[in-house]
Design a binder for these strands. Structure first.
Lengths: 136, 136
DNA sequence: GTAGATGCAAAGTATTTGCGACAAG
DNA sequence: CTTGTCGCAAATACTTTGCATCTAC
């Protein structure tokens, strides 16, 4: 089991308010990639007084501290997911919107190589695959 | 030499207005990846009466017809570039914002493989590398 | 001639921010 | 205590749209 978001906040010196604890909890329990609006909905069910501004501020803060990852899939609004040790990329079903997480070491290595070829050190990357389900 | 944007419009049955011709010309001559505002600036120098709404409408139209590609790099606004036969991905210098275009067949093939592994046919993808220049 | 394009200004989205009240460390 | 956070509403940034007019074909 990896660190909880609350533990990460303490480790990184991020002040833990009630609102942040709730947002952390909701994100921890999410198995999907909610956008801010959806996150706000879920959070509101626990504490209806939390404002959407706080949700925006918190996801931004958590992203800066490497606690959440922000994704901007094609033409969609920003979505968030918890970040942990296992890096992965996304395969998006263009029909249903379903998101599949995958890992491919080979691609990861090639990316580093490409960056190096141009004299760069890779600090980040974004790989998204868009596909349609095959009728098998 | 590949088809001009105007030729593509004719081939695809896209009505060619004066405004569209100017936007086509500016994009053809661009060696960078301008956002709508920047494109509007350039276009305005040729015809100051063109409205930004038309620029938005036109890039959207061109994108739908596969004439322009839209990119949404990390935290940045939407940028456009002309689309031609040679597909490429982008390596972004996180310090300077410089954008380097690259092609890597091996990565392309692996992407298809990953999609297939999950039962999908790859219809599109997005690969962006973010790097810092190495002090060599 | 007619369907579709344009310019304008107004309306939409998504997100950020100023400010006074409030709470965590 | 003090610094940073919260809620609220207003502001901002980007993009789309309704409508009357105009234009490419």
């Amino acid at each position: 089991m990896s660190e909880t978001i609350e533990q990460k906040c303490i480790a990184k010196g991020v002040k833990l308010t009630d609102q942040r604890k709730i947002i952390a909890k909701v994100m921890s329990e999410a198995n999907d990639h909610p956008d801010v609006d959806e996150l706000y909905n879920r959070v509101s069910k626990i504490d209806s007084k939390i404002s959407i501004a706080t949700v925006y501020r918190t996801v931004k803060l958590f992203e800066e501290f490497g606690i959440l990852a922000k994704h901007e899939f094609k033409g969609d609004k920003a979505r968030y997911e918890t970040l942990n040790e296992s890096h992965h990329d996304h395969l998006i079903d263009v029909k249903s919107g379903e998101i599949i997480e995958f890992v491919d070491e080979e691609i990861e290595n090639l990316q580093k190589k490409v960056a190096e070829k141009y004299g760069y050190e890779l600090v980040d990357h974004k790989l998204e695959l868009y596909g349609v389900k095959k009728k098998s």
